[in-house]
Amino acid sequence: MSILVFVEIAEGKIKKTSIEAVAYATAMGGEVTALAMGDIDQSELAALGNYGATKVIHAGDSRLNDGVILAYANVITAAMKTSGANTLVLANSSLGGSVSAHVSIKMNASLVSNVVALPETSGDFKVKRSIYTGKAFATVVLNKANKILAIKKNAVEIKETGGTASVESFEADLSDHDFLTKITGVQKATGDVLLPEAEIVVSGGRGLKGPENWGIIEDLAKALGAATGCSKPVSDMDWRPHHEHVGQTGVKVSPSLYIAVGISGAIQHLAGVNSSKYIVVINKDEEAPFFKAADYGIVGDAFEVLPKLTEAIKAANQ
């Protein structure tokens, strides 16, 4: 089996979710070729060998520095045909979702998104995916010979293989039609750590009483190297920006650790955090439903508990 993995680049580095996609493809077995687009250092690409890729193909056309969906879909399709890959693996990201949908039509492939485990291939090709915003799973059979798997974050453990990969440049025929979508600007989210990809998230809710009190959330997040999030009421009241809203209709996170402060735990909020590995809940109300979904809980006043916790973590880090 020959597998192509589409890897995304951010700030000159391969994104961690894309490295997970390479690790996933390697764990499936077979020959793994990675495809990267736009400007990036050759050494970054060669390093994908350490996660199991034997070859990296690089479409270095500078028009591909922007994530233009149609152009990306065409390059991926051309790369699948050239490399003879019948399976495409990629991260289920903001860009990857749309790109994979276009490729699935071009390649007449079965596409499954939000994949959370390796496929079963003994009989039919089956894979498990998350549904109902992480409240359930579905095992589906992929009907077509060509297959695309868009992998959810943290679905697979990254293993270093110590291998190396050769890097080849790749050119696909691209037309003006592929660049109809013009990206005219990019605005970076505020905060040092990006919420959708964070390993640790500290979120605040209405229990914080007002936007002026967010310093204690930010201090704890800083001590942990965490991203900050919030509940829907908090973003609805404009205490915090919309892109921090964690929940069913906001950002879905899958960090190793999620710390919820002053959030009661409405079902819509839980849906956005239920694939976190560990959940800590800090709430004044011992009846808060969030405690039922938590691994560790503290009943107490956030304004007293948080500064103490931040100090204890700083001390532990030293």
Binding site: S104, A109, S110, L111, V112, K126, I131, G134, K135, A136, F137, A138, T139, V140, V141, L142, N143, K144, N274, V280, V281, F291, K292, A293, A294, D295, Y296, G297, I298, V299, G300, D301, E304, V305, K308, L309, A312
Partner: peptide, 27 residues
């Protein structure tokens, strides 16, 4: 493109471990 085989619910979460607000070091 794909056919459902079966649904499943996530494994039940174990009981929450409570830590005293006066002992954050334990957390």
């Amino acid at each position: 493109g794909a056919t459902l085989e079966k649904y499943e619910l996530p494994a039940a979460k174990g009981a929450v471990k409570m830590v005293s607000a006066d002992n954050v070091q334990e957390l």
